[in-house]
């Protein structure tokens, strides 16, 4: 009986430990600052390398996929997905007709937000990588300046059920303050 109880407690402790290990930690989850910095780095990379850099954004194991997020590149003028590391089926396809489960035209809003001088945030539902279900996603979009092209944008998002758009705007405001963060 005593042995059985001991085994029972040990099993429970093991199960709790395994569940804890499976839970995402802070370091596995991209936050708003990470996303803004990564998207701006991607815009800078495209400015420097031009169209030859597009292929890098299709690499699933590349530098533009990190933590639980990834950068995707699209053309608002030509209505095309240029690069998406996790959804190769979308690359080269029209984007403006893509909706989330509430019927929101995701890329119409992303293109509008990305045209703002500092870029902007858009909230929608999208499958979280590895989770296999729809999550609330808030993406930051900004324009990418490339030779002999117009309307190219880059974006990446956070998967967060609680953070509000005003809170995200504050993050963007702080990261866009040239006194604290010199222009890229």
């Amino acid at each position: 009986m005593k042995l059985a109880r001991t085994i029972g407690w040990a099993g429970l402790a093991f199960a709790c430990g395994a569940a804890f290990a499976a839970m995402p930690t802070e370091t596995d989850v991209a936050n708003a600052e990470d996303v803004v910095n990564k998207v701006r780095a991607a815009a800078r990379y495209l400015h420097d390398k031009g169209a030859s850099a597009y292929a890098d954004f299709n690499q699933k194991d590349g530098r533009w996929v990190w933590k639980d997020s990834y950068v995707f590149v699209y053309d608002c003028r030509k209505d095309r997905m240029i690069a998406h590391p996790l959804r190769p089926d979308l690359v080269g396809k029209p984007i403006m007709q893509i909706t989330d489960n509430s019927g929101k035209y995701i890329f119409k809003d992303l293109c509008k937000a990305g045209n703002e001088p500092r870029g902007g945030w858009v909230e929608y539902s999208w499958p979280k990588p590895g989770a296999g279900r729809l999550s609330r996603k808030v993406s930051y979009a900004t324009a990418a300046d490339i030779s002999f092209a117009a309307g190219i944008q880059v974006s990446a998002g956070i998967y967060d059920e609680g953070i509000t758009l005003p809170e995200l705007s504050k993050v963007l405001e702080r990261l866009s303050d040239p006194a604290k963060y010199p222009a890229l």
Binding site: H47, D48, K49, G50, S52, S147
Partner: peptide, 17 residues
């Protein structure tokens, strides 16, 4: 353009400008 692809003397959009 080919140089940009192979990382040989990369020309940014400003450089091309």
């Amino acid at each position: 353009l080919v140089g940009n692809h192979y990382n040989i003397y990369i020309s940014s959009k400003t450089d091309v400008g």
